[in-house]
Design a protein around this nucleic acid. Structure first.
Lengths: 157, 157
DNA sequence: TTGTATTAGTTTCAAACGAAACTATTATGG
DNA sequence: CCATAATAGTTTCGTTTGAAACTAATACAA
């Protein structure tokens, strides 16, 4: 095996992007099972409800939801429609600019939020309990840094 | 706002599963652009080629590819078919057990591997260069631990 | 004032995906 | 020896997704 060729061999098991993907998918899958099983919600559905539930008295536009969740506007549009049809959120057209609408959780939507949010937070706590405080702190820093760097690299393209 | 209610509010921006998902998607998206642009390959396609390229002299079955990539067998099946149609991999039925086939990169497939693998490794190196060696080492440990724990929690369900 | 650019969100359509069922082959136990 | 179970992989079909185009509304410049 020549040096140069061996040096460029990619070992998936050690490759950070792959490991991040697998870890993220496993984690998300486990949590998605919670709200899918209990309330028939998709990942996109819950993600919007999670943002709207942060401050239930405050409404958000779809554009704002896109920004907060980093989801594509089409995906947000579809999830919003589903959640309205399910009666979990409601829409109020902005009289100052009829292109947009204000969205907020309904009473039933809030009940679902109050059921799911603690469960997903508990799941996170359980997971993080396996790390030392120092590890958790560094993980937090590293994720923030990698996100910033990757966003920069993506923006530079 | 009452204590208990406020305590269970979920802040997506601080929520580890969400942050992992966003980071992973951003990273994977950037890398996927490399092989999609250069060779028209999907994430699934490249993932299989990456595994087969690790040791080109050795063949693997679809079951083995599922294990190495943690991909669903249907997804592997579809990607294998596509890669065979593209001429990037070839299949040889196992004479001892005709249910399975041995898969390996073709010459052209290997050329693609030799083009993409270094580029994706370089991308990873560039990303990791923004971490200190200590941070990178802890990240490695933490990802492994979290994967193990999440797999356990998933298996316990 | 008006034509054009931009914005916010929706719809269309082809491709991809997920769950379930299926086929071909081999393993196993009575 | 043979019926059944299990395995490896494929196909079906309905749903979801992604890219592009579209609609309605507002902003802006001449």
């Amino acid at each position: 095996m020549t040096g140069p060729v061996a040096a460029t061999r990619l070992d998936l098991a050690a490759y950070l992007p792959y490991r991040l993907s697998i870890l993220s998918n496993t984690v998300s899958g486990a949590i998605a099972a919670i709200y899918e099983t209990r309330h028939g919600l998709s990942v996109a559905d819950w993600r919007l409800m999670a943002v709207l539930g942060m401050d239930p008295e405050r409404s958000l536009t779809q554009k704002a939801l896109c920004a907060r969740t980093r989801m594509d506007k089409v995906q947000v549009s579809r999830a919003v429609k589903r959640l309205i049809d399910l009666g979990h959120i409601e829409r109020e057209v902005d009289s100052a600019d009829r292109r947009r609408a204000h969205l907020r959780l309904t009473g039933p939507g809030r009940a679902i939020y109050d059921d799911v949010a603690p469960a997903t937070l508990e799941w996170e706590r359980e997971l993080l309990s396996r790390l030392t405080p120092a590890e958790a702190a560094i993980l937090d820093t590293v994720i923030a840094r990698l996100q910033e760097v990757t966003d920069e690299m993506a923006a530079g393209s």
